[in-house]
Nucleic acid binder design. Structure first.
Length: 762
DNA sequence: GCAAGGTC
């Protein structure tokens, strides 16, 4: 009789691939809903393959250590507190089959988590059939290609427990910290927060993530906007008719206005400068590297303005329906023999891509391959070549996500982006100025990866030692900006960089923090910490600084390494970290009064917000509505974003709203005033108001970007809204524009309507 | 009810 082997896999899709590779004839046997054994002959053996669905066990507290049944710290102090729950479906099938086989092959993913999953299956198998202990092997395949599967199944490696035990240790420590910490903090919170079922959670990964957000808010709160200055000079053509380029002083930005004035005094009237250097060159920029999960999520969250979790769901649906590859991968490297040409040929079925695919000369490999990352691992995220169409499952959003994945993939085969660039250095009365330009010669891959099209700037030509004509030397001022708030895209990139969480868990971490009310989304994309989130970090920074920085994860990782390399035993790991945690939890106990006091403040703020929500108003102001000039501006609360804004007291007759802004002395006022407001937007319910971005001035809609109505105004000259004059054509405010005539030097005044450009006189 | 990590 041929020997029988039990093969354990980590997931159904993987077992299917392996079975299809090894077996010429095979049979299946259903053992649970949508789960099948695969049985077949290979290498004179009968292989029985069982697909798992990730871990078989979960860690829980024993009954007598449930909520409110013991002190939270008892979970850590008592070695019987944590127990393993085993999934009965897998327990049953593994036990049953283990009894009838001669060998056990563990074919879970080739990484430490995979070893731990294999260990769970192994413990069940040897308890059903102890003789398997001597007949267990591990399969370590670096990918799921036919060749690699065959290689791995012919080169079985010895089964060792160390890596699995290291992960088991990590799982136990995570449970201690999470369970004991969460219960202690939640217990304290419930003395103050009388909401039903409120839970404040604590964990090894969520606290460092929360700290990132809290720290950024702290930086922004402390940030002092400072005025800085650039000195600019316009270089003219020889006939002085046209500005060729605006050059910037090399020492810009200046901090001191005094210094700027001094320089302007010295050189302000200069009419010429000497070109000291002028060069041009060509730059080739190769296509971007392949996407791993983080890259794909970062792009989709940014472009589609959705959460990381939502982006992950889009990718999962596309994967499950066969349109893209497995979306959870750390890898940015396509292997050499990857069948790119098959996929590219299939993509020709989509007419939008056909002209782009014709630009490809070599379909055998991508032009900028990334690094191989992750021990398993799946290929980078790519389309399968199947073309999706809109139906019940595939929505417009799925199609958009698929288009990004496909375009990024196709772009990786296209020629380089070629730019011509130039730079000039010019000395005006010994003061150094310079400027650069870049223009596209060949769009290359940006024809497909359109979201990465570079900015074009105006080209200029000079010769060295040429005397350049200078028009006006002037200064511009700007205010420094605080560091930006985190969004899904920047946050998951930072988490990957700091090695916090995993490719699969990162989007969920952000969701969890939001569900716990530690952070809120403000606007559409940005995250901000709540008072509650702030409080948690404040207390834990005192109690256990290492837990709120990636330090604790590093410590756990170091211990795991010691166990995996046999320098420490599993028991040593547990006892070391148990002792460590007990000490810190005791410190937490001493901080509970402080935590309670801080949460009280959180409650005060929350109850204020509740009142605000109930009445839908807060303090009425004396500010006249800038749009209708009849109602008063009233501060209101956007319930969705928790952000305050101003609206007109005559709502719904007057639909004026404006975001709130903080003045220097800390007052909250509407971001628009009567000075800026032009009138109702002709396209939507918004308000048109004067906007200034850099040196551009225009009239824009308050509902931007939803409504993109805008009218540009002259770049120079003084603009004043004329409150008392109304346009006879469209009944909006007129504008007076005072500018200097370039030729005569006299000032000219024009009065016109910004919307219909009517002069008002005719 | 709670963590973090697999997978669906």
């Amino acid at each position: 009789m041929v020997p029988r082997v039990l093969v354990i896999g980590e997931k159904p899709s993987q077992i299917k691939t392996i079975a299809n590779t090894l077996f010429t004839h095979s049979s299946t046997e259903k053992f649970a809903d949508r789960l099948y054994l695969r049985i077949g002959q290979w290498d004179n053996k009968e292989l029985i393959m069982i697909p798992l669905i990730g871990h078989i066990t979960t860690i829980d507290t024993a009954k007598e250590f449930g909520w409110n049944k013991c002190q939270p710290l008892a979970i850590v102090q008592n070695s019987n507190a944590l127990i393993l729950h085993t999934n009965q479906t897998f327990q049953r099938i593994i036990s049953r089959k283990a009894k009838v086989v001669d060998e056990l092959w563990l074919a879970t993913d080739p990484d430490s988590e995979g070893d731990n999953i294999a260990y769970e299956a192994y413990m069940i198998a040897i308890s059903a059939n102890p003789s398997l202990k001597q007949a267990t092997k591990r399969i370590w395949n670096s990918s799921l290609t036919k060749q690699e599967i065959l290689r791995a199944f012919r080169n079985l490696i010895p089964w060792e427990l160390y890596l699995a035990l290291a992960v088991q240790g990590r799982r136990m420590v995570d449970a201690w910290v999470g369970f004991a910490g969460t219960r202690q903090v939640t217990g304290t919170a419930r003395k103050v927060i009388k909401q039903r079922g409120v839970v404040l959670s604590v964990g090894r990964v969520q606290l460092p993530t929360l700290k990132l957000i809290v720290d950024r808010d702290r930086e922004r709160d402390e940030f002092q906007r400072k005025l800085k200055f650039n000195i600019l000079a316009d270089l003219l053509s020889d006939n002085r008719k046209e500005v060729l380029v605006t050059v910037k002083h090399d020492k810009s930005p200046f901090k001191e206005e005094k210094q700027v004035k001094q320089i302007l005094n010295e050189i302000g009237k200069a009419k010429t400068g000497t070109i000291t250097k002028f060069k041009t060159w060509k730059t080739k920029i190769p296509p971007p590297r392949p996407w791993n999960t983080t890259d794909a999520l970062a792009l989709l969250t940014k472009e589609l303005k959705i959460k990381a979790n939502a982006a992950m769901e889009l990718l999962t649906i596309l994967y499950e329906n066969g349109y893209i590859s497995y979306p959870r991968t750390e890898n940015r490297h396509f292997k050499d023999n990857f069948p790119h040409d098959e996929i590219l040929t299939k993509l020709e079925g989509y007419s939008n891509y056909r002209p782009l695919l014709k630009l490809i000369t070599n379909t055998s490999q991508v032009r900028s391959n990334g690094k191989k990352q992750g021990a398993e691992d799946h290929d980078p995220v790519h389309p399968t070549g199947e073309i999706p169409t809109e139906d019940k499952i595939i929505t417009k959003m799925h199609l958009k996500a698929w288009d990004y994945v496909s375009r990024h993939y196709i772009g990786m085969f296209l020629p380089d982006l070629i730019q011509t660039r130039g730079s000039v250095k010019v000395t005006i009365k010994e003061e150094p100025f310079s400027q650069k330009y870049q223009q596209t010669i060949d769009e290359g891959w940006t024809q497909v990866i359109t979201w990465k099209k570079p900015k074009e700037t105006k080209k200029f030509v000079f010769t060295e030692d040429q005397i350049a004509q200078v028009d006006k030397i002037r200064s511009e001022s700007f205010k420094t900006k605080p560091p930006a708030q985190w969004n899904d895209s920047t946050l998951i990139r930072q988490l990957e960089k700091l090695r916090i969480g995993t490719k699969s868990s990162r989007p969920e971490i952000i969701n969890k923090l939001e569900a716990r009310k530690y952070i809120v989304r403000c606007g559409k994309t940005f995250y901000e910490s709540t008072t509650r989130g702030h409080t948690i970090i404040q207390v834990f920074e005192k109690v256990w600084p290492d837990l709120v920085t990636p330090g604790f994860t590093r410590m756990v990782e170091a211990m795991m390494d010691e166990v995996a390399t046999k320098q420490a035993s599993y028991d040593t790991m547990l006892e070391t970290l148990r002792g460590h945690y007990i000490g810190l939890h005791e410190k937490l106990l001493s901080q509970l009064p402080r935590l309670q006091a801080l949460l009280q403040q959180d409650m005060l703020i929350r109850s204020e917000q509740k009142i605000a929500r109930g009445k839908r108003t807060t303090v009425p102001t004396q500010v006249l509505c800038p749009l209708c000039q009849q109602g008063k501006a009233i501060e209101r609360l956007n319930v969705k974003t928790n952000k305050k804004f101003f609206g007109c007291s005559r709502y719904p007759e007057c639909k004026w709203t404006a975001p709130s802004k903080k003045t220097r002395d800390g007052k909250i006022i509407p971001a628009q005033t009567a000075k800026d407001v032009v009138g109702p937007c002709p396209e939507c319910n918004g308000t048109l108001f004067l906007k200034r971005i850099k040196d551009y001035r225009f009239v824009g809609c308050s509902k931007y970007p939803t409504c993109q109505t805008s009218f540009f105004l002259p770049k120079r000259g003084r603009l004043t809204l004329l409150r008392k004059e109304e346009c006879p054509m469209c009944q909006r405010q007129m504008v007076s524009h005072v500018s200097r005539n370039e030729k005569t030097g006299e000032s000219e005044k024009k009065v016109f309507c910004v919307i219909c450009q009517n002069s008002g006189k005719g």
